[in-house]
């Protein structure tokens, strides 16, 4: 009996098990405290779609062997640039998704280029990717702070009325804010279902899945799984690592655009600084490790992680009205899970 429990535990993975238990616990607590479930379900679904693509960006990075992409802010910056330029050029007609589609298209060349350059960099520092990635991300974000002030944006909704540079938060009410969330949205028993958002997320997952079953996708996966095996099968490992990073950066760029439209604001300056950590934590919770990841890990992980945070929020506020317990909980869970994954990396070989 104990053995079967143990094998079962190993199969699901300790983090996923603990987080699932925690999720069920907060759900039960929510029932006991008679929380408004329609609101909770709407919220979970919204945040699931909002964070999903950012977590999905981890998958090609891990699969290609560069580890969780702690340099996610690079892609985020590209996405933000796309979003800003789309608004600046006033490509915000209804046909263009109020700027949503141009935002993605414009961000692509930035993301591809940035991902390529960064991928080449990562090939020179194999084995220490995670730490360097973190600080590359931090550096880019802090560098772009100067960029947000200096870049010649003129759109009155985006720049400070007095002074120089872009605003810290830019409202998207008049442009693509909530386009996906409201697309084909409907209500079941009062719970809002953001159909467009969910479709877009699952569509992205599907595309990535199709890619992973193509010849290139398989080569990418082998490169990460066992670089020596890949080399012996005539696969150029370094090229695939770069490809993985390009994909990850592109998905991150798309991810932040989806995130901003769902949130209703573009957030600049220091805001993207810690963007990578919840995304990394999500895929790890979903069952990924720093070396192996599947698309399902991103889906399950985001659902559990965001689910806990959403449900715990009102529960916690009922218990301790002051302070943001949910935020503290996020910090603890998120970093504990990353630490756990790090202890599983093994002696750095």
């Amino acid at each position: 009996m104990a053995d079967t429990v143990r094998t079962y535990t190993r199969k699901i993975g300790l983090p996923r098990l603990i987080i699932s238990a925690l999720f069920i616990a907060v759900c039960i607590a929510a029932v006991i405290m008679k929380q408004d479930f329609r609101l909770l379900v709407s919220d979970v679904l919204r945040r699931f779609g909002m964070f999903g693509i950012l977590a999905l960006a981890m998958i090609p990075a891990i699969q290609s062997g560069t580890g969780p992409n702690f340099a996610l802010p690079i892609g985020v910056i590209c996405g933000l640039l796309g979003g800003l330029i789309a608004i600046e050029l006033k490509l915000t007609s209804a046909i263009l998704g109020y700027g949503f589609i141009p935002a993605i298209l414009i961000s692509l060349p930035f993301a591809i280029l940035a991902g390529y350059i960064y991928g080449r960099l990562l090939n020179k520092i194999k084995g220490s990717e995670m730490l360097v990635a973190t600080y590359t991300g931090f550096s880019i974000v802090s560098f772009m702070q100067i960029g947000w002030v200096m870049l010649p944006f003129k759109h009155p909704e985006m720049i400070w009325p007095i002074g120089k540079g872009l605003r810290v938060t830019i409202a998207l009410d008049s442009t693509y804010g909530k386009v996906l969330n409201n697309l084909w949205a409907f209500k079941i028993k009062g719970a809002n279902i953001p159909t467009g958002l969910l479709l877009f997320f699952f569509g992205s997952c599907f595309l990535l899945w199709v890619f992973s079953r193509s010849k290139t996708g398989i080569a990418l996966n082998i490169s990460g799984d066992n670089p020596k095996f890949a080399a012996a099968s005539g696969i150029d490992v370094d090229k695939n690592r770069i490809l993985g990073m390009v994909l990850s950066t592109v998905i991150a760029a798309v991810g932040i655009i989806v995130y901003s439209q769902s949130y209703g604001y573009i957030q600049l300056y220091m805001d993207p600084l810690y963007m990578a950590f919840p995304a990394v934590a999500a895929v790890l919770i979903g069952g990924a490790s720093t070396k192996k990841a599947k698309i399902s890990h991103a889906i399950i992980g985001v659902f559990l992680f965001q689910g806990i945070l959403v449900v715990a929020l009102p529960v916690a506020n009922d218990m301790i009205p002051e302070g943001n317990l949910s935020e503290v909980l996020r910090m603890i869970v998120q970093n504990a899970i990353i630490l756990y994954a790090l202890t599983k990396v093994g002696g750095g070989d």
Partner: peptide
Amino acid sequence: AFVAYGVIGVALGLHAWRKTM
């Protein structure tokens, strides 16, 4: 702020690069 983060990033990158090379 950029100098603070950047110098750490560059130092870590160089160290990793030397380690691999």
